[in-house]
Design a protein around this nucleic acid. Structure first.
Length: 502
DNA sequence: ATGTGC
């Protein structure tokens, strides 16, 4: 038996790229890490595996706790973690969703080629920077009232459509058509709404960005065709979340859950895993609030995308429709969703980790927590929009501003292995503090411009240093593992042209 | 990630 010794824990190799942490002590289920040995070396470098083991203590966790190839430590629960808790007798945990509720990415395609854009990069990056608000604090493309925020929380991208910030096809190309029906705006605090009202349509800071990219590689012609992707094509990638509103909401519910469900909290190995039992009032309230914050983040990305269309109109002096600036897809990276999944059970009706041990299958309703993980539903699932149902949903995985990004499609194995999920990005190699010691923002910018013709403009030089390409893991390796596992298949690769960030 | 600590 091949094992991987990670100090405090030893992992058993199940098969290529699949490692299991056996169930021991108070663990309710085993844990599985989906990674190559090279990525395991990085995953075992911080508290990721300890947090993964802690997550197996959560009530109702089904089958196993999951760590993706880009996993690293987060608040209580790993970033790159997936936990599916029974919606009837399990729990929901804000720490397993993340502070930035519905942090995610959307990609917009165009009919422009790299040739059309070359020579305009400076003007484009300046105009994007001037027109798309970024950085910490307030200022969005739309300054609303708390009443507007309520409507956004309730209706998601339908609000944007009513207010001329969207066209109907945008809704068809967004997860859940840009609206979570379970959203409950009354479950969002006044403080969170106040923080949100002047951040509608704003990138924020940290690893959030807007990037103009060119498609450099197509790996699957048939799927790329369905996604309308071709080599040399210019696309736009937008990565941001729910800003202060989502952060405040996560914080509000963590504090309330800690107080109200102190007994459950005492049974867990880490306070940061605080969870509300399924069926409790607070579980329903948090779920309603989280769904509302999801809607807010979708509207945020929608407004940024629509403003980007206007910037392209200005720079290229053409109507955005002529440039065929269509939303490919919008995917959430930090979310919990009630979903129905088939699980294998043994003769006693107990869920088994390995489908090979199942005597039959049952369908369960689960709170699928994806924290730094992407839904990757394969062809045929009804949740995949009609335009993509024959090939599987688009999965968008951003890399760093110097290495490019990937488009994948939901893989056939994802429903069996990972509750229909795959990785979400490259994952950090070093802390922000360490990054600022290693790099200077100005030097990073100059190197990218001179070596790679990538135009970067940021509010803060420190952010450029913190986000330097060298602070990230190898996104190629993360995607290679996803593809090899069959949970998310490579479709195309992009390379940056212009990047704006906080 | 975040009006960058509680």
């Amino acid at each position: 038996m091949t094992t991987y010794d990670a100090g405090a824990v030893t992992l058993r190799k199940v098969r290529d790229y699949v490692w299991e942490m056996p169930k021991q002590g108070d663990m309710r289920v085993p844990a599985r890490v989906f990674a190559s040995e090279a990525l395991l070396d990085e995953i075992s470098d911080d508290k990721t595996l300890e947090q993964l083991r802690n997550a197996t203590h959560l009530p109702g966790i089904t089958k196993y706790a999951i760590c993706m190839p880009d996993g690293h430590q987060g608040y209580g629960f790993p970033v790159g973690g997936v936990g599916a808790m029974d919606a009837r007798d399990g729990c929901i945990s804000p720490g397993a969703v993340g502070y930035d509720i519905n942090c995610g990415v959307r990609m917009m395609t165009t009919n422009l080629t790299y040739d059309d854009v070359q020579g305009h990069e400076q003007e484009l990056v300046e105009s994007l920077f001037a027109n798309v608000p970024s950085g910490l604090g307030g200022g969005g493309v739309f300054e609303g009232t708390v009443g507007d925020v309520d409507a956004i929380l309730e209706d998601g991208v339908q609000w944007a459509l009513r207010n001329d910030w969207a066209v109907p096809e945008d809704l068809e190309h967004c997860e859940d058509e840009g609206k979570r029906p379970d959203a409950d705006p009354t479950a969002i605090s006044q403080k969170a709404k106040d923080r949100g009202k002047n951040q509608i349509g704003s990138l924020g800071s940290g690893n959030h960005f807007l990037e103009v990219q060119r498609v450099t590689d197509v790996y699957d012609d048939e799927v790329a065709d369905a996604f309308d992707l071709t080599e040399d094509q210019v696309v736009v990638l937008i990565h941001c979340g729910s800003r202060g509103l989502g952060h405040q909401t996560c914080n509000d519910y963590l504090r309330r859950i800690e107080k109200t469900h102190a007994g459950l909290l005492d049974s867990l190995p880490d306070r940061e895993l605080a969870a509300a039992p399924a069926g409790s009032q607070l579980a329903d309230e948090y779920y309603g609030a989280m769904c509302a914050a999801i809607n807010f983040a979708w509207v945020n990305r929608q407004l940024i995308m629509h403003r980007t269309r206007q910037v392209f109109e200005q720079v290229f002096d053409r109507d955005w429709r002529d440039m065929e600036m269509h939303l490919l897809y919008d995917v959430a990276h930090n979310i919990a969703k009630k979903e129905h999944h088939q699980v294998g059970v043994d003769a006693d009706g107990t869920v088994v980790a390995d489908d090979g041990d199942a005597v039959e299958y049952e369908t369960r309703e689960l709170y699928v927590h994806r924290k730094g993980a992407t839904r990757a539903f394969p062809a045929g699932r009804e949740e995949v929009p009609p335009a993509y149902r024959a090939v599987g949903q688009p999965v968008i995985i951003p890399g760093s501003m110097g290495t490019g990004s990937y488009v994948l499609r939901g893989g056939e194995r994802s429903m069996h292995e990972t509750f229909g999920s795959t990785a979400h990005g490259a994952g950090r190699l070093m802390s922000r503090t360490q990054a600022k010691k290693e790099y200077r923002g100005g030097d990073v910018q100059t190197a990218l411009r001179e070596h790679d013709r990538i135009y970067v403009k940021a509010q803060s030089g420190a952010t450029v240093a913190e986000e330097a390409p060298g602070v990230y893991k190898d996104v190629d390796e993360v995607v290679r593992v996803s593809d090899a596992l069959g949970i998310g298949d490579r479709v195309a690769r992009t390379f940056p042209v212009c990047n704006i960030k906080g």
